[in-house]
Nucleic acid binder design. Structure first.
Length: 418
RNA sequence: GUGGGUGUAGCUCAGUUGGCAGAGCACUAGGUUGUGGCCCUGGUUGCCGCGGGUUCGAGCCCCGUCACUCACCCCA
C-alpha cells in the first residue's frame, strides 16, 4: 500500500466542514475590514526566501523543501507566505496605483521539520498583510481583527502577547547591551544559545532551557531601548487596544523568529496544543519591501496556523454535517430508473438528494436512509408505480404523504420549502 | 537532527510462563414477504507494521527497519 508522505496528512470529508467554516469566517471578516484575496504560487525561487526570512534562520538553514528544476534553478516550496505576497506586491508594482494594499491568502506551507502535535510538513496558514501604512492604528486594528476572528470562532483559552522589536535606529543599542550581558553569562548558556548570542542574540530571550532563562531573567528589555518614535508607536498600539477592550499582555520575551520583523510583534497563544503554544503570530516588517527590491514601503501582517486553529475550534458537528434532505428508496429496475431521473431534477432544484441503486430490500434501504440521517425517504416501489405515485415519509414524525408522479419535482419543492 | 511511547479486524482495544487469532462497535443477512432507530439470532472481516534471528513452535523473546505519536529544537 502506498502511504502518504511523512508529516503530511489528508483532510478528510468528516473534517473539511470545519475547515471550510473557519476559512469562510475568516474571509468574510477580512473582506469587511477591506482585505482582498491574493493567491500566489506555492513554488518560488529559493533566493526569495533566503533574502526575506534570513540565511541564519532554522527555516532557511534546514527546513525548506528545496530542489533544482530541470534547468538547474533552485526552487523552494514556500515555508511561509509573506515573502511571496511581498514579491507579488513589488513585481506587479501595486504600490504605483495605490501603495496601500490589504491582502489575505489561505493555503499550504511546507517545512521539513520533525512532525508532532500541531506541526505538519505541509501545514496551512491564513495570512493577512497590509502594505503602505506605517501608522500604529493599523497595527492595533490588525490585532483587533485577529482577536475578533478567534471570538467569532468561539475560541477560548487564548491570549494575546505583544512586544516591540524597535527599528534599525534603536535595535543596535539594545543588541549591544544584550550581547554584553550574554558574554558575561556565557557559561550559564546552553550550546545553542552560545551560538545564538553571536548570530542573533534576541533569540536567546526565547530559549526554554532553565539555565538560559535564569541567565536572561534580568536582561535589558528592548522596550527600554526604543527610540522616541518606536516608543510612541508602541504606546499608541497599546492605547488603542485598551480602548477597544482587547485584552493583551506585553511580553518582552516575544521575539519573532524571522529576521524581517520591526516594531510591533504579536502572537496568540493557547494552552490547548501541547508544546505548540502559538496559534497565530505576526508583526511589522517595515524594511522588507525595500530589501526585496521594491520601494520603501512599510508593512505589517500576521499568519494563523490553520491546522492548529482547527484543533482548538470545537463546534457542534451536527450543525456542520450535511444531511441529505431526500433519500430515494427505489425498488426494482423501473423504480430505480425513475428515481435516477427524479434525483437529478431534485439535486438541480437545490434539494440535497441521494438514491440507493443497490436494489436491496426496503428494510435495508430504510436503514441506510436512517444512517445518512435523511430528513425524508421517498419510496418508489411496485405498488406506487402501478398507481403512478410515490410515498414521501418524514423520518422524524413517521408521517407519510402520497404524491402523484405528475409534476412530482415541482410538488415536492413546494412541499419541502413550505 | 536527538530522545521516550505505540504498531493485532474498517474503528477502539484485549491477548496469560512462548502452544488453534479474540471482544465490543461497525458491516451484512434474517426474526418482520414493502418501512429506519431498540431488541434477538446468524454471518463476513486479519501478511499480528516489515525483514531477519532464537525455538519443535513466536502476536509474545532478540536484532534491524519503517510508520505513527509525544517531547527537545524552531515555529503557525
Amino acid at each position: 500500500m502506498i502511504q502518504l508522505i511523512r508529516g503530511f496528512k489528508d483532510i478528510l470529508p468528516e473534517e473539511s466542514a470545519l475547515w471550510q467554516h473557519i476559512e469562510n469566517t475568516a474571509r468574510a471578516l477580512f473582506e469587511d475590514f477591506g482585505f482582498r484575496e491574493i493567491r500566489p504560487p506555492v513554488l518560488e525561487k529559493t533566493e526569495l526566501f533566503k533574502r526575506s526570512i534570513g540565511e541564519d534562520t532554522d527555516i532557511v538553514e534546514k527546513e525548506m523543501y528545496t530542489f533544482p528544476d530541470r534547468k538547474g534553478d533552485l526552487l523552494t516550496l514556500r515555508p511561509e507566505a509573506t515573502a511571496s505576497v511581498v514579491r507579488s506586491y513589488i513585481q506587479h508594482k501595486m504600490y504605483a496605483a495605490d501603495p496601500i494594499r490589504k491582502m489575505y491568502t489561505i493555503g499550504p506551507m511546507f517545512r521539513r521539520e520533525r512532525p508532532q502535535k500541531g506541526r505538519y510538513r505541509q501545514f496551512y496558514q491564513i495570512n493577512a498583510e497590509v502594505f503602505g501604512e506605517a501608522s500604529p492604528y493599523i497595527d492595533a486594528q490588525l490585532i483587533f481583527m485577529l482577536v475578533s476572528l478567534f471570538e467569532k470562532l468561539s475560541v477560548t483559552d487564548s491570549n494575546v502577547h505583544i512586544n516591540s522589536l524597535g527599528c534599525p535606529e534603536c535595535r543596535p543599542d539594545f543588541r549591544k547591551a544584550l550581547s554584553e550581558l550574554l558574554e558575561s553569562r556565557k557559561k550559564q548558556l546552553c550550546e545553542d544559545c552560545i551560538r545564538r548570542s553571536e548570530r542573533n542574540p534576541l533569540r536567546v530571550l526565547d530559549c526554554k532551557v532553565p539555565s538560559c532563562r535564569e541567565a536572561v531573567s534580568d536582561a535589558p528589555s528592548i522596550i527600554d531601548y526604543l527610540c522616541p518614535a518606536c516608543a510612541a508607536h508602541f504606546d499608541t498600539v497599546q492605547e488603542m487596544l485598551v480602548k477597544q477592550n482587547v485584552r493583551f499582555e506585553v511580553d518582552k520575551r516575544l521575539v519573532r523568529g524571522l529576521d524581517y520583523y520591526t516594531r510591533t510583534t504579536f502572537e496568540i497563544q493557547t494552552g490547548a496544543l501541547g508544546a505548540q503554544s502559538a496559534v497565530a503570530g505576526g508583526g511589522r516588517y517595515d524594511g522588507l519591501v525595500e530589501a526585496l527590491g521594491g520601494p520603501s514601503q512599510p508593512a505589517i501582517g500576521f499568519a494563523i496556523g490553520l491546522d492548529r486553529l482547527v484543533e482548538i475550534v470545537t463546534l457542534n458537528q451536527e450543525s456542520l454535517a450535511k444531511h441529505p434532505m431526500v433519500f430515494i428508496a427505489a425498488l426494482g429496475d423501473e423504480g430505480i430508473r425513475n428515481a435516477w431521473l427524479w434525483s437529478n431534477d431534485l439535486c438541480m432544484a437545490g434539494i440535497r438528494t441521494e438514491v440507493d441503486f443497490s436494489g436491496r430490500s426496503l428494510k435495508s434501504l430504510m436503514k441506510r436512509a436512517d444512517k445518512v440521517n435523511a430528513s425524508y425517504v421517498m419510496i418508489v416501489g411496485e405498488s406506487e408505480l402501478k398507481e403512478g405515485s410515490v410515498v414521501l415519509r418524514d423520518m422524524k414524525t413517521k408521517e407519510q404523504h402520497t404524491f402523484s408522479m405528475d409534476n412530482l419535482v415541482e410538488n415536492l419543492k413546494t412541499f419541502l420549502y413550505q
